[in-house]
Design a protein around this nucleic acid. Sequence first.
DNA 1: ACAAGATCTGGAACCGCTTCCAGGACGACG
DNA 2: CGTCGTCCTGGAAGCGGTTCCAGATCTTGT
Lengths: 331, 331
Amino acid sequence: MAATIKDVARLAGVSQSSVSRALAAPDQVRPATRERVERAVAQLGYEPNRIARGLSTGRTGTIGFLVPDIANPLFAGIVKAAQRRAREFGLAVLLADSDEDPATELDLIRTLTKQVDGFVLCAPRAGDDELRSVCGDLPVVLLNRRVGQLPSIIFDNADGIRQALAHLAALGHRRVAYVAGPRTSWVNRERLRAFRTVAAGLGLEGVEAGNVSPDFEGGVAVADLVLAAGVTAVIAYNDMIGLGLASRFGARGVTAPGDVSIVGFDDIPASALVTPALTTVSQPKDQCGRAGIDLLADLLNDRDRPGGTRTSLPARLIVRASTGPAPAAVR
Amino acid sequence: MAATIKDVARLAGVSQSSVSRALAAPDQVRPATRERVERAVAQLGYEPNRIARGLSTGRTGTIGFLVPDIANPLFAGIVKAAQRRAREFGLAVLLADSDEDPATELDLIRTLTKQVDGFVLCAPRAGDDELRSVCGDLPVVLLNRRVGQLPSIIFDNADGIRQALAHLAALGHRRVAYVAGPRTSWVNRERLRAFRTVAAGLGLEGVEAGNVSPDFEGGVAVADLVLAAGVTAVIAYNDMIGLGLASRFGARGVTAPGDVSIVGFDDIPASALVTPALTTVSQPKDQCGRAGIDLLADLLNDRDRPGGTRTSLPARLIVRASTGPAPAAVR
DNA sequence: ACAAGATCTGGAACCGCTTCCAGGACGACG
DNA sequence: CGTCGTCCTGGAAGCGGTTCCAGATCTTGT
């Protein structure tokens, strides 16, 4: 049986309250008292019961972390960084995987909401209003998504698209496709929007395909359509779609980058390993995970943030082998 | 402010205890009472406070789930399945990522131990005794690891190795290397042991290399050594190492499967996408995650398991393009 | 040396729920 | 009709902390 605060109090010969104070606010007790308590604590190996503490303080020391798919390397990376940072704050991380389903997501949030101090919602799929209402007045930070003025950390999608399109334009491509991911994805909508404006600004013809599921099969499924659209380059919502495209293209004798250039998003490990290696827009997932926790921690201690509560992280185009000059015939 | 059990009691005109009973043991209250309670609950949108409940019952409804690296697709897959299953049991999952470090792992377990009902330790890196002692008398299930008689779910590593070696032997390979992963990995030791006995049984010459870190770089780093050993085939501790090997081999003009055959473990997504696609031993991660939660749930309700508490899941060799006949010269 | 103020301490209430215990209502049985 | 057993119910005592409040102790200034 673990030692309780009572045991410590008895052993130290002080009251429960003094023990509590000695631990929580050491400068409010006399040094002598503090020492006796510390000795007793050490002797008993006492550690406060977080549940009990939670009951009286209303704080659990736990945060909820929601992702659409933990098996997606992007989210896994973000979670990893976040979890490490959370540990530094003494926060435990309750993981929730929504399987890309908005309903599951809402449900998950609702059931977890009473056992956490706050939420980090990574790329939530639910609608703005639902999201706003479901988390009540719990501190929430959004990752990879922006909803009104809620605290959020996003990657600079528009700039990612801009870099990709500029790269393709410089290679002589004039007609470029964007293969859209899940309709419920805010990121997808952002990229699509950026695609439209930037393509127009660069004088490129923009073609849109999708929406497909954000995986290899999604890319395979939409590849023929993309080809039929007569583009010389395609930007995929994410790497897995890009890889799927490349695969189906290859099967039809269309090779990258000779016949068509492909750009992905996320820089998942596989992208660097395949042939041709996929050109992709990389996003600093570590930074994102860390920053998410930092922001939430500030919110929990209702500290104000000098820098404001909505951050944008830089994306960076990684040029690899899947992009090259536009075919001469079309040029 | 959320409704408490008192509010419900007042509205229903019964005592707190009756409300509690009506919810937890409906057959112990008169139907009439139950109904009044139910109505009040519905009207107030009451949901019991899990923290408070935890304090009096000593159960939190939360389990700890520890992995060495959530960014590893194998573990991510296991976690995903586990988390889904846990949800069906109404259990929340506290995620802990040890970064492959035994000390971190122990630390993580220790700090989480007081806020969870039980643990699922996936491929823990710590030593047997530490592991046994650190989780005290908390229910624990081990995944991908066996320690004494502790409840565990493992993949059949020996059979995986057997399938791989049999496959290679059938292709005419006589001298085969095993590239070992982390020394702290129990799985690695299992595979190594199986490698030795099975190779001997098949009349193959077994060469051992490693230990390397279980990633691409690890494979790259050890590739030259493997080549120098004059083998015609190599089994890697996992796919990432296998991929690293293939890459460095390629850079030296040694191609798979022409010059050397490569077999990996885990069947990560990248393995199917690279060229040549990696032959690998696939393990049912979904089943593993589910089974882990099922087992822990049984333990939590101290139900006895008819099937015993140590399960082994079948591995399956997926033959792809990285393995082929041994080079004629050597044959 | 004494009053006023600052500092420290212990007692007790409380967080929201579970559960033990004792007593009331009720039916059955002799 | 009294008694006993069963079934329900409410009261109250925890679970292990935090925190308010009042009183005790210690400074400090004069």
